[in-house]
């Protein structure tokens, strides 16, 4: 076990835990954001650099601070480590800089992007970005590519987190897409516009933190915040069958895996569940899905009935007088 202090909060975690995971155990504001790290994907992390933190004390044994900011998603904790995240000015400035870098070539087409409302980059920019725009050159653009009948790749939005590459590597039998090219010309691709065709290919949509990989059965059907997420399950021979249905009225608009508050799926689901079972009768509905993330979806929290809350709670008495009496 190792004792680690993050922003003044002490927690004991198992050896080999990363700083990010330790911070997630504490929860709340001390959790660094993560765009490329994905708990269930081995080897992910370290690429987007938004989770950088300052280690002011390496360990009890070697109390020297680490010279550079470190990526919290891949740095393992050591006993007596002291980490500064939101309490360190350098960290916040570096993060601002990196968010700016992530956005300079991002099209910012949120109004027409299907990911808007559940986009990690959107959340990240709200929390850590700067409001100005210093990049005045032309942005990098790519053509849209259809990766088979279900998935569309819109590379212009991609932040090259490599999550979809690791997903295809680790949960499917054969990976046909990867990163081609290098530098800012690097792109996700299937080389000669191959089709991604296997039972679990749809999961790349779920792991994508932005709107680069989208579900073609859902594109432009609706805005995510108008739909109601429902936990549901079915007896699926291929996967666990535990999903979230995104419904509007009686219509199932979209099926995704269940995602936690860090936007990571609990269990990967198969393509049959995701793309083919689009009717309520296919599913056993468990109840409303609780969306914990700080997202626009949670603005419509309908699962908690509002009971006995005064409509005008704390107005000064002078104003209250003018209101109609009960």
């Amino acid at each position: 076990m190792a004792k680690v202090t993050i922003d003044g909060i002490e927690i004991e975690v198992e050896d080999g835990t990363t700083i990010l995971q330790a911070a997630r155990k504490i929860g709340g504001d001390v959790v660094p954001p993560a765009m490329c790290f994905y708990t269930s994907l081995k080897g992910s992390g370290g690429k987007c650099r938004v989770c950088l933190v300052k280690v002011t004390q390496g360990s009890t044994r070697d109390p020297r601070p680490m010279p550079k900011l470190v990526a919290s998603c891949i740095t393992q904790v050591q006993d007596g480590m002291v980490v500064e995240n939101t309490t360190n000015e350098d960290v916040l400035n570096a993060r601002k800089g990196i968010v700016e870098m992530l956005l300079i070539n991002h099209p910012l087409d949120c109004p027409i992007c299907d990911q808007a409302g559940e986009c990690s980059l959107q959340d990240l920019s709200y929390e850590h970005g700067i409001s100005g725009q210093r990049f005045e050159e032309e942005r990098r653009t790519f053509n849209k590519v259809d990766l088979g009948p279900y998935i569309q790749l819109h590379m212009t939005r991609c932040i090259l987190c490599y999550r979809c590459v690791y997903t295809a590597d680790q949960i499917t039998e054969k990976r046909v897409h990867g990163v081609l090219g290098r530098g800012d010309a690097a792109e996700i691709g299937t080389y000669i516009e191959n089709v991604i065709d296997n039972d679990f290919s749809g999961n790349v949509i779920d792991v994508c933190p932005v709107g680069a990989l989208t579900d073609k059965t859902w594109r432009f059907k609706n805005r995510v915040w108008f739909t109601k997420p429902m936990d549901a399950h079915r007896d699926c021979p291929t996967c666990s069958g535990k999903v979230t249905l995104w419904t509007r009225g009686e219509e199932v608009l979209r099926v995704t895996a269940r995602k936690d508050q860090y936007n990571e799926v609990e269990e990967f689901i198969c393509n049959t569940c995701r793309f083919d079972k689009k009717e309520v009768k296919d599913w056993t509905i468990e109840g409303p899905r609780h969306i914990d993330r700080n997202s626009v979806i949670s603005a419509n929290h309908y699962e908690l009935p509002v009971v006995n809350v005064p409509i005008v709670p704390n107005l000064p008495t002078s104003t209250k007088k003018n209101l109609p009496q009960e």
């Binding site: 370290g46 932040i159 800012d184």
Partner: peptide
């Protein structure tokens, strides 16, 4: 020559 793996280098060098 940037490999394009991490965001500050990928985007910053071009900028």
């Amino acid at each position: 020559e940037s490999c394009g793996q991490c965001s500050p280098c990928r985007e910053g060098t071009g900028w």
